[in-house]
Design a protein around this nucleic acid. Sequence first.
DNA 1: CGTCTGTTTGATAGCGCTCAAAGGGGGTGG
DNA 2: CCACCCCCTTTGAGCGCTATCAAACAGACG
Lengths: 235, 235
Amino acid sequence: MPIASTDPSHCSKCTARSVSLCEAMADRDVDVLESLSTRIRASKGDIVVHEGESARNLYNITMGTVKLYKLLADGHRQIVGFLGMGDLIGMSPEANYPFTAEAVTSVNYCQFNREQMRTVFGEYPAMRERIFEIAANELSEAQEQMLLLGRKTAQEKIASFLLSRLRKAERLGGGGNSIELPMSRHDIGDFLGLTTETVSRSFTSLKTKGFISLDGTSRVKLQDRAGLEALASGS
Amino acid sequence: MPIASTDPSHCSKCTARSVSLCEAMADRDVDVLESLSTRIRASKGDIVVHEGESARNLYNITMGTVKLYKLLADGHRQIVGFLGMGDLIGMSPEANYPFTAEAVTSVNYCQFNREQMRTVFGEYPAMRERIFEIAANELSEAQEQMLLLGRKTAQEKIASFLLSRLRKAERLGGGGNSIELPMSRHDIGDFLGLTTETVSRSFTSLKTKGFISLDGTSRVKLQDRAGLEALASGS
DNA sequence: CGTCTGTTTGATAGCGCTCAAAGGGGGTGG
DNA sequence: CCACCCCCTTTGAGCGCTATCAAACAGACG
């Protein structure tokens, strides 16, 4: 169960400030958000929002990883994105959430009432602008993912996935050629349109060919980035 | 080759006004857009924008159908969307177009300079708001398409595609249970992550089972909508 | 140490791709 | 106006990739 915090000064102490939407506000105005937001902590497996549920709130992730997924009647699942620090749930103006959001790791996030936020956006056009940029960026990523899902082989999918994770880590300031995968092989499969077994076999295959090396199941070192880039874009 | 028109009053005569972004402007202000826009006509196969090209312009489609696609090095193509009346190309703030846009039929569209439009948006917040809504809607559609591409069988994909086309026609005021498919089987395949042959076989199969009937290759009557809905959502 | 969950490896089958050819409809030229 | 041609679509045969079913393995936790 997610647990709400009562800390009255969480915003000023927030470590995600520089990458979140509140980045668009002046320091002295952050206390406006403070009064409108609730800080929540969730454990692995906790549900943040359910698909189809009325979209009353906007959530801003400040720590951890969240997966967004949609289900088919036959139980097949498609993960449509993994969110991390600074990412938003519920920014689209739809009346209902179009996906379920579930914590992959321990997660901290801020909850805002969407109705109240609309007022704030009126006073801080830069925030609305920033949300539009985030949405546009997600659209672009979604279209790239459509290319992956529709036209790439299992190995190409895994290579693309590893590279996009590495690029994301680089954007957030990380160096090196090694990445952490907090989600399970099953989750990776549901994101790439594959089964657990095929994901596992592809990892093994890439390892055998010298493209990557594994340290446990969740830490991956990209040994041959150029080779992976070639694979990911269709040889 | 696309051909620019010199008609100085195209906006006031525009039949797409009610579904385009200019809907957000008062009648007396439309002449502002008039002076900033160029009306262009393109023939089937003409390219509107190339993937990777510098994104200088915003395009608003007023007639016809456009396909957006991305290419892999091995020649595989993924169509990420079909656009029609009222849809926009280049609304995301990215520096370069992330896809190629090509006319599927004869197409009319308006060209705006993005830099100039940014000024207009400052004066007409409702337009910016409307673009955000359109982008958010496209994101939602893209995520639905991810579910389709990653987790549906060929028949389920075709059923989903036909239903989404029918819903779109209904939103634009069309009645009945019949739709027009201006794009080729090959295009449909590249949208659904299938080959031409599999698309054709799936149409035949749905016809044989009584879900649809065909009039020529481009007109489809949905004989059993409930059955198709069940199929599309995973039996 | 035992259990439980997640991962890897193995064997088999099926869906959709590839290669191939026939069928059909629209446009053009005679 | 008709015939031909070209391209798109449909149908057919066979194969390969990935899903499915199954079991061994490994790591975390009590």
